[in-house]
Write a protein that binds this DNA or RNA. Structure first.
Length: 201
DNA sequence: TTTTGATCATCC
DNA sequence: GGATGATCAAAA
């Protein structure tokens, strides 16, 4: 695929972390680097490549969107950017065995997914828990341990970047930018259901 | 500088 | 080994 698109394959992903995602997006004709919104606006589809191990299980969490810390307390789940992003996702599994050179890794058949009512409710519960903590001024104490399916983690070029967030009195403080991520246990269930993968080894 | 694309690398 | 916190690049 890289060859057809004339894209050189990097030796590894240490300095090219988004390479696979960008390659697949280009191959499918997504508007490269388009602004906010789905990758395929006319279809309302968000494209996500997902690195999988030999069993088909995700090797990494999935970034969803930046956490708008200052307004999180004023958004409902229905209005949340997390829900909007995940409304319709095309998951593209990518072989991610480090033993296999990047240029030789295989793509899986994609899975077009929307949250079931149960999944939507579960994500909404996590969203409310995390958003409530941020709105109450606990952003600095939230760790990625919080949230059953969704988590909040740093999302920044490096640890000295700052953005705004509310403190416990609602006044603005400077803090590390955060993002919402899907835990592997969530994406693992999506893939297991779609591909009927074995639940264990 | 921010957004979009994620994986790295260390810790537990 | 898996998850958490840190980090990297391209494009707008």
């Amino acid at each position: 695929m890289a060859e057809r698109l004339g894209r050189p394959v990097p030796p590894d992903q240490r300095r090219h972390k988004g390479w696979v995602g960008q390659l697949v997006e280009a191959a499918l004709g997504g508007e490269a680097g388009s602004a906010a919104g789905p990758d395929f606006p006319h279809l309302g589809v968000e494209l996500k490549t997902i690195p999988v191990d030999a069993r088909g299980a995700p090797r990494e969490t999935t970034f969803v969107c930046a956490a708008p810390l200052t307004v999180l307390g004023q958004l409902t789940w229905a209005e949340s950017p997390v829900r909007a992003k995940l409304a319709r996702v095309l998951w593209v599994p990518v072989q991610a065995d480090p033993e296999v050179p990047l240029g030789e890794r295989r793509l899986g058949s994609p899975c077009l997914w929307s949250p079931s009512p149960e999944e939507d409710a579960a994500l909404g519960a996590d969203w409310r828990e995390l958003s409530g903590l941020v709105a109450d001024g606990y952003v600095e104490t939230i760790t990625a341990h919080r949230g059953q399916w969704l988590q909040i983690r740093p999302k920044a070029a490096h640890a000295r970047i700052r953005t705004w967030a509310p403190d416990d009195e609602g006044d603005p403080i400077r803090t590390l930018p955060r993002g919402f991520y899907l835990r592997t246990r969530f994406t693992a269930r999506i893939l297991a259901a779609h591909y009927r993968l074995p639940s264990s080894g």
